[in-house]
Write a protein that binds this DNA or RNA. Structure first.
Length: 888
RNA sequence: GGGGAUUUAGCUCAGCUGGUUAGAGCAUCUGCCUUACAAGCAGAGGGUCGGGGGUUCGAAUCCCUCAAUCCCCACCA
């Protein structure tokens, strides 16, 4: 016998097996032209982040797919890495500095950068150790980091290349300015939030008349930067004012009244103040009409020096109040109306975005976007679920240029040098010492760094050695295009689409064939997990409590493709119970096994009906699991596994085998063991990609079965079961289902009639001819599982007086009770059964009476309906006879 | 304002291109310590498939419409 503790203790095995896999390099993938690669790029978590359930789910799915393909003999490469996450990381360190009373600017660029590097070395990568406790089978030798020298080189290369092609340009634009972080952020890092604000109404005096032009605005403070008032040319109220001048209060500037179609006469007053330097629409109008652009705010969102007192130096929101107050003092203010509007906020600092005119670097996107869109349209790039394709295409078809400069210090510094002599711009793969235009050495590097996504969009390329030329390039051509990208839908634009563009641009093909969007993890109320709500589940906590296998299994089984998954800590108990169930199933078998047990091949045995069914059932499961995984239906795959192991293997397979396992007949025992070991091994192989630890531990103890061929050194690299290699017993599987129906029927009747479990009854089973052999051979099982002290079966079995009855297709079971039960109760039970079936038969009958149905329904449907009706009518007849017989 | 998604048992969800009596897990109820697992076993109850209309012999499934919830995109001052 092989000894196992009564319950599975994950702490004892997880680390052991993980270390074992590392030691033997099972997760390592090296280029091998003989083997087909299977590659997954890990979406690099922020280097300073902690594992959360979103990772837990997404990466468990990636590991499931990776391990599955690895077992299928592919050269599986799951590439891990981290992202330097410019803004997020810099914010963390700045907060630290704040506690020490320091500031970034006080520290200076170099020292600050050093601080960040130290921080990264100290806290960065903790998440990677957390991945290891989850059992993720990444190729750790390939660990990449977006600021690695190799990867930074790729960033530099791409910048220079795109610059030389004219796809990177410097422009003065309105950018989303974060006044707290004092940097421009991309549109994709802005979230618009609906707020209840006000719409303010006031007037500007028309110069040279005593007329006024009424204005409505949500942002009065920007009036200090107004350079025009716009009306619609068709608006009769204001036509006579077009071309006139307005005297702007406080600043005393004369600005024109202009006509522009943008203005909608019905909104507000029909006249709009134009502040080209502080509003995107006004910016466009300003360009159209060659208006001046006056920036009236500082980097931190206070009113700039070019504004008059008392506004100068005021915070923008305070200035708003002050402007109103002053307008009132001039009797120019009319009213304030409550107004709901959407205001852009910074995702990072949560502050209100200030549109701000500034010099930034941009990537011209149209040319890059077109092939990326085409790839999805052609179906070469596939999304799962497919509905995201539309979103992806919509974005690409309406693409805006990408602002890639960030006023941060943490990141890749923009490789641009400005010459103060000739104003020329110099770039290059190495840092220049002189201006390439005038050879002056008075050049200074741009202060800004690149957007983090400007390095992560190269993730399919740079970790494989691109653009270097040597042997690493083999990695690139071997592993890229990768197979599937598993990520969150939130970053479809920020990351997914851009990787597609970069790979197409620089390598000429797609970075991946499939994009799988995993579910968003929410709490039971359907709210997203978030730090501020504190409603998240810490994966490490649950791993500690339930084990990595349980967490992985639970997370995956709960998560449908896309959509959202509602999760609760208690859910993980299900996973733990399942893991324990497997453990105990094995434990039970191990009691009857020797460590070096020799087991006969299946085809040398004369298998029982139940055994054939069980093997066939394994075959079905192998087929389904593979199929589900092919289709990225990971939760279905895992569900199937659960069904098979619990519902089929344990509840029926092991139960039926029990008598054989303790049998004195050696042949019966060894036969039963051979089947069970064979099937358990198959189950463990199927389970391994989801539950690597418990499966490996049990597998290592399980004696080898000849039908699975030579043993691999580890379950990690054992063959994943394919349906075709498992014997097929389709006919027996169907026959066994009748036996199951008989047993379930008996159990159900007994339970409903409240018979004490210890009370055994003889079972008399009348069977239709097609089932006689089957039922005959199953008498022992029926006896044991149906709690019968004896079983008689045959075509001509008669009802033995007062009996309970269980009826099904092709059989009628009688359990003589002789006054043990309440006859009235049994009659009622049978009558309700009669009613239930009558209702169904009634439905079938009316269908068949419908001429149209008979005329138009396909033959097989018709046939099915007829045979079903006949079958149920037979049951009805039997039932009514039984009710009558109860009176005897 | 545009686009997308969801709505099936008390809860979380399956039900693919329309065709057996709409399923599973959890929860509930009943009975069981039956020689692995009480983290277990056996059994049971529970749904007019969001409302309304339509197409069809036949609709949870296809079409229209309404409602609710959610997400994404968008410059209406």
């Amino acid at each position: 016998m092989i000894d196992l503790e009564p319950s599975y203790n994950h702490q004892e095995y997880e680390s052991k097996w993980y270390q074992n896999s590392l030691k033997h390099n099972y997760f390592k993938a090296v280029v091998d032209p003989q083997k087909k690669p299977f590659t997954i790029l890990m979406p690099p978590p922020n280097v300073t982040s902690q594992l959360h359930m979103g990772h837990g789910l997404g990466y468990s799915i990636q590991d499931l797919l990776t391990r599955w393909k690895r077992m299928k003999g592919l050269n599986a490469c799951w590439l891990p890495g981290t992202d330097h996450a410019g803004i997020a990381t810099q914010m963390m360190v700045e907060k630290e500095l704040e506690k020490e009373g320091l500031t970034r600017k006080g520290l200076g660029r170099e020292k600050f950068f050093q601080r960040l590097s130290d921080w990264k070395d100290k806290y960065g990568g903790m998440i990677l150790d957390q991945f290891k406790t989850m059992g993720f089978s990444c190729d750790w030798d390939r660990l990449a980091y977006t600021m690695d020298p190799k990867l930074s080189e790729a960033v530099r290369y791409v910048f220079v290349e795109l610059f030389r092609e004219g796809l990177i340009y410097r422009g003065e634009r309105l950018v989303n300015w974060d006044t707290v972080l004092q940097t421009a952020i991309s549109d994709d890092e802005v979230e618009t939030i609906e707020v209840s604000g006000s719409l303010y109404f006031y007037r500007y005096p028309i110069e040279g008349t005593d007329e006024f032009i009424p204005i409505a605005t949500t942002r009065p403070e920007t009036m200090l930067g107004d350079t025009a008032v716009a009306v619609n040319a068709a608006d009769e109220r204001f036509q006579h004012l077009i071309g006139k001048q307005v005297r702007l209060p406080f600043v005393d500037r004369l600005i024109p009244v202009i006509a522009d179609d943008y203005v909608k006469s019905e909104f507000g007053t029909g006249a709009v103040k134009i502040t080209p330097a502080h509003d995107p629409n006004d910016f466009d109008i300003g360009k159209r009409h060659q208006l001046p652009f006056i920036n009236v705010m500082t980097d931190s969102g206070t009113m700039a020096d070019n504004t008059p007192t008392p506004f100068r130096g005021m915070d923008r929101f305070q200035a708003r109040k002050e402007v109103i107050k002053q307008l009132k003092a001039l009797s120019l203010f009319d009213e304030e109306k409550p107004y709901k509007t959407t205001i852009p906020h910074s995702e990072r600092s949560k502050t209100v975005i200030e549109p701000r005119l500034s010099h930034q670097w941009f990537v011209s996107m149209k040319e890059l976007a077109e092939p990326a869109a085409a790839a999805a349209r052609d179906g070469k790039l596939q999304f799962h679920p497919e509905t995201w394709k539309k979103t992806y295409l919509y974005w690409l078809d309406n693409i805006q240029d990408w602002c890639i400069s960030r006023q941060l210090w943490w990141g890749h510094r923009i490789p641009i040098w400005y010459c103060s002599d000739c104003q020329g711009i110099t770039t290059g793969l190495t840092d220049p010492s002189v201006c390439e235009h005038c050879q002056s050495n008075k050049i200074v590097q741009d202060e800004d760094v690149l957007d983090t996504w400007f390095s992560s969009w190269l993730w399919p390329l740079s970790p494989f050695g691109w653009p270097a030329q040597k042997n690493e390039v083999q990695d690139l051509t071997y592993f890229n295009p990768t197979d599937v990208l598993v990520t969150a839908p939130e970053i479809i634009f920020l990351w997914v689409a851009r990787m597609v563009m970069a790979n197409l641009k620089f390598k000429g093909d797609l970075p991946f064939k499939h994009v799988y969007f995993n579910a968003t993890v929410c709490d039971k109320q359907g709210r997203k997990f978030s730090k501020t709500l504190g409603n998240g589940i810490d994966p490490l906590e649950v791993v500690n409590k339930y084990g990595a296998d349980a967490v992985r299994f639970t997370a995956i089984s709960l998560a449908p493709l896309g959509g959202r998954v509602r999760m609760d800590v208690g859910d993980f108990e299900n996973g733990a119970r399942f893991v324990n169930k497997i453990w105990n199933a094995a434990r039970f078998m191990f009691q009857h096994l020797q460590p070096d047990q020799k087991l006969p091949e299946l085809n040398k045995l004369s298998l029982t009906l139940a055994e054939k069914w069980l093997i066939h059932r394994l075959r079905e499961s192998a087929e389904r699991v593979n199929q589900h995984l092919e289709n990225f239906r990971v939760n279905d795959a895992v569900e199937e596994l659960h069904h098979f192991i619990w519902g089929a293997f344990c509840d029926w397979g092991l139960e039926c085998a029990k008598t054989d396992l303790v049998s004195d007949v050696a042949a019966d025992k060894i036969r039963a063991l051979s089947v069970l070991v064979y099937v358990l091994e198959g189950a463990l192989r199927l389970a391994h990609p989801v539950m690597p630890f418990v499966s490996e531990e049990l597998w290592s103890k399980l004696p080898a079965h000849p039908d699975w061929g030579p043993r691999a050194a580890s379950l990690c690299i054992a063959r994943f079961p394919e349906a075709f290699e498992i014997p097929s017993f389709a006919e027996e599987a169907i026959q066994w289902k009748s036996v199951q129906e008989i047993i379930s029927g008996i159990r159900s009747v007994r339970a409903q009639m409240g018979l004490p479990p210890k009370q055994e009854l003889p079972a008399h089973i009348r069977v239709d001819p097609f089932l006689t052999e089957v039922v005959k051979s199953a008498e022992d099982w029926i006896k044991r599982l149906g709690r019968a002290d004896s079983v008689k079966s045959g075509v001509d079995i008669k009802r033995p007086g007062q009996s309970l009855t269980a009826i099904g297709r092709g059989f009628e079971v009688f359990l003589p009770v002789h006054g043990l039960i309440d006859i009235a109760k049994e009659r009622a039970r049978l009558q309700s059964e009669v009613q239930r079936i009558q209702k169904i038969v009634g439905g079938l009958k009316s269908k068949l009476d419908n001429e149209n149905f008979v005329a138009r329904a396909p033959e097989d449907v018709l046939e099915q309906t007829r045979s079903q009706k006949q079958n149920l009518e037979e049951q009805l007849l039997a039932l009514s006879q039984n009710i009558k017989a109860l009176e005897d």
